[in-house]
């Protein structure tokens, strides 16, 4: 029965958002009806289910019958479009960089090699930009071809093999209890420390205590508090529900981005107590802090975006599917 859920899960991916659950429930009930009948005539359940699924066809094909409009790019057209995109992505920036360097060399009579390199470096952003625009144009052209020319392809039909269906989701929507508890504990600690015991964050010297942070930090503190507070609420909610939903993961995503933005704010403000920094010769501290925090903030923004997009396209499932495919290939080449 796990196979059926794996199958339905893949169908769900390709169904339009509207009526998605409805269609899946109906398909489940219909497949089970058919299965009942076949097992009643003495067939092995697993084998019967496999045959029914093979009969129904690949998840994407099944789902597409429920989509009134076809896909923007058909699966036959996709490899051709990707090929054109790759060619454009490689050649266009090279052509632009090359042409620009030639123009630079001819326009500047007494250039040095490093001038050329600097000019080249300055051109990289616009080369990348034109590459993105060109890829977008290729996509639009292919969509138009698909819509108005609807070319027909003759391709070999690959039989659908249910064994290659990706496993059911593992970690995407699961709540790690330890992670949530730890997050609540440490966030509470941070709130307490910075709001009520700020004095503890400082330098201790000969029985005296000097605060490490200045009033710029106090101005940012409310923003930090908002983020921490939301994080605590969210983690309590996760613990309570024991599973994540698209909604709560969206809140989680926004919280992460918010946190990273506040971190950037923190990194770019001068929050250290000058007296301490100069007095104890700690000049390395603000800079190290600044770059480390900026790095962490940007990495966490990228990480959050990737995680969030992954939820929609189930990259982790794709990986396992590819591994399985590689394995079956190996097996078939051995035999």
């Amino acid at each position: 029965m796990e196979l059926l859920e794996r199958y339905l899960r893949q169908i769900r991916r390709y169904l339009p958002f509207k009526d998605r659950e409805e269609t899946v429930s109906e398909l489940r009930s219909l497949i089970l009806d058919q299965l009942d009948e076949q097992t009643a005539s003495g067939q092995d359940q697993t084998e019967a289910l496999r045959n029914i699924l093979i009969d129904m066809g690949a998840p994407r094909d099944v789902a597409l019958r429920y989509v009134e409009k076809g896909p923007l790019i058909s699966r036959e057209m996709e490899p051709i479009m990707l090929l054109v995109m790759k060619i454009v992505a490689i050649t266009l920036p090279l052509v632009i960089l090359f042409a620009n360097s030639i123009a630079f060399v001819t326009d500047t009579p007494d250039f040095t090699f490093s001038d050329v390199l600097v000019n080249l470096a300055l051109m990289i952003p616009s080369a990348l930009y034109s590459m993105i625009v060109a890829i977008g144009m290729v996509f639009i052209v292919f969509v138009l071809i698909e819509r108005f020319a609807s070319p027909q392809f003759e391709i070999e039909q690959k039989p659908f093999n249910p064994d290659l269906l990706p496993e059911l989701p593992n970690k995407l929507f699961k709540v790690s209890i330890a992670e949530s508890v730890a997050a609540i504990f440490f966030t509470t600690l941070l709130i307490y420390l910075f709001n009520f015991q700020q004095g503890l964050v400082g330098i201790y010297y000969e029985g005296e205590q000097f605060p490490l942070l200045n009033e710029n930090f106090d101005r940012i503190l409310p923003f930090l508090n908002i983020g921490w507070f939301v994080a605590i609420v969210l983690n309590i909610y996760f613990l309570f529900r024991q599973k994540k939903t698209i909604g709560s993961r969206t809140v989680e995503f926004i919280t992460k981005i918010y946190g990273a933005v506040v971190a950037i704010l923190l990194a770019t403000s001068d929050i250290f107590n000058d007296v301490i920094i100069e007095g104890y010769d700690l000049n390395f501290l603000p800079n190290t802090f600044k770059y480390a925090l900026l790095f962490i903030a940007i990495a966490s923004i990228i990480g959050a975006i990737v995680e969030y997009i992954k939820m929609f396209i189930n990259l982790d499932n794709l990986e396992t599917a590819m591994e399985q495919q590689a394995e079956t290939k190996k097996k078939s080449s051995q035999s």
Partner: peptide, 28 residues
């Protein structure tokens, strides 16, 4: 009718219809 009973019934009466055609048709 529900989907599967309809497939059966049409098949019995000689109209062979693929489930993949019928179910989306019902939905439409």
């Amino acid at each position: 009718h529900y989907g599967y009973s309809l497939v059966e019934r049409l098949n019995d009466k000689g109209l062979i219809i693929d489930q993949n055609t019928l179910y989306p048709l019902l939905r439409r």
